[in-house]
């Protein structure tokens, strides 16, 4: 028996909007730790890792570890039917081939049940080694989204370079090239508007903008984004989900032949 009650039901709606374009089908794993997902895109270039910790749910019952295969587009369709202020409960019986999403309006005057068919997904689970990153950039998520969108109108790839001057996002295309430099800026009144750069070594990596733009669909989940870079490793783009956990995107770099 599984029963997970999330008062902030719209968090789940936002999570689905953030991942459904990157991944079609995925297993949601439920354990005493929380509700999680790890899935790669079809070309195995990007990976999404989601964790919603059990403590973040108002009620969390998971009698045994369960893996539920879901089509994310279908799940998003169902969650779109929940109101933004609705409480969402995820329910499944042991051995069942369906999952139920229950939506309750805040004043309890409307209760809806949406039952979705589960699917068998044979997915590879990847171990992500702990890593030391050469540079960690924390910036407003809306600013990062703006830069990715702007650069993708000029080119297909972005070079992200971190030096002691700041973080530089560069692209080039048929019509010209573009560079955006963000400097460390901690003097603003609100911490969520600041940019911080923790650099151990300068680093410069090239990535496909198509994937970066897809990651920025998670912007509504968090006011800040953390970008962790090492010359030997995939970049990690992390959006923290307040009091619940995180959504992390890993993207393999492009390498010169």
């Amino acid at each position: 028996m599984l029963e997970l009650r999330l008062v902030q039901g719209n968090l789940l709606k936002k999570v689905l909007e953030a991942v459904k374009d990157l991944v079609t089908d995925a297993n949601f794993d439920c354990s005493s730790t929380g509700f999680s997902l790890q899935a790669m895109d079809s070309s195995h270039v990007a990976l999404v890792a989601l964790l919603l910790r059990s403590e973040g749910f108002e009620h969390y019952r998971c009698d045994r570890n369960v893996s539920m295969g879901m089509n994310l587009n279908n799940m998003a369709k169902m969650l779109k039917c929940a109101g933004n202020d609705d409480i969402v409960t995820i329910k499944a019986d042991d051995g069942s081939d369906t999952v139920t999403f229950m939506f309750e309006s805040p004043n309890q005057d409307k209760i809806a049940d949406f039952e979705m068919k589960l699917m068998d997904i044979d997915s590879e689970h990847l171990g992500i080694p702990e890593a030391e990153y050469h540079a960690i950039v924390r910036m407003p998520s809306s600013e990062f989204a703006r830069i990715c969108k702007d650069l993708s109108s000029i080119g297909d790839t972005v070079v992200i370079s971190v030096t002691k001057e700041g973080v530089k996002f560069s692209t080039r295309g048929d019509i010209g090239n573009a560079n955006v430099v963000c400097r460390q800026n901690t003097t603003v009144d609100k911490p969520e508007e600041s940019t911080t750069i923790e650099m151990h070594e300068p680093v410069s990596l090239t990535f496909a903008l198509r994937y970066m733009n897809s990651f920025t669909k998670a912007t509504p989940l968090s006011s800040t984004v953390t970008i962790s870079l090492s010359s030997e490793l995939p970049v990690v783009v992390e959006y923290k989900i307040a009091e619940m956990g995180y959504i992390r995107f890993y993207l393999a770099p492009k390498i010169e032949d």
Binding site: M40, S43, H44, V45, A46, L47, E124, H125, L126, G127, I128, P129, T157, T206, A208, L233, P234, Y250, A252, P253, K254, I255, E256, D257
Partner: peptide, 14 residues
């Protein structure tokens, strides 16, 4: 142009 890596060489499959 630079070529796109996949994630597999970076992560441990199990």
């Amino acid at each position: 142009p630079p070529c796109q890596n996949t994630l597999r060489p970076f992560f441990i499959s199990f």
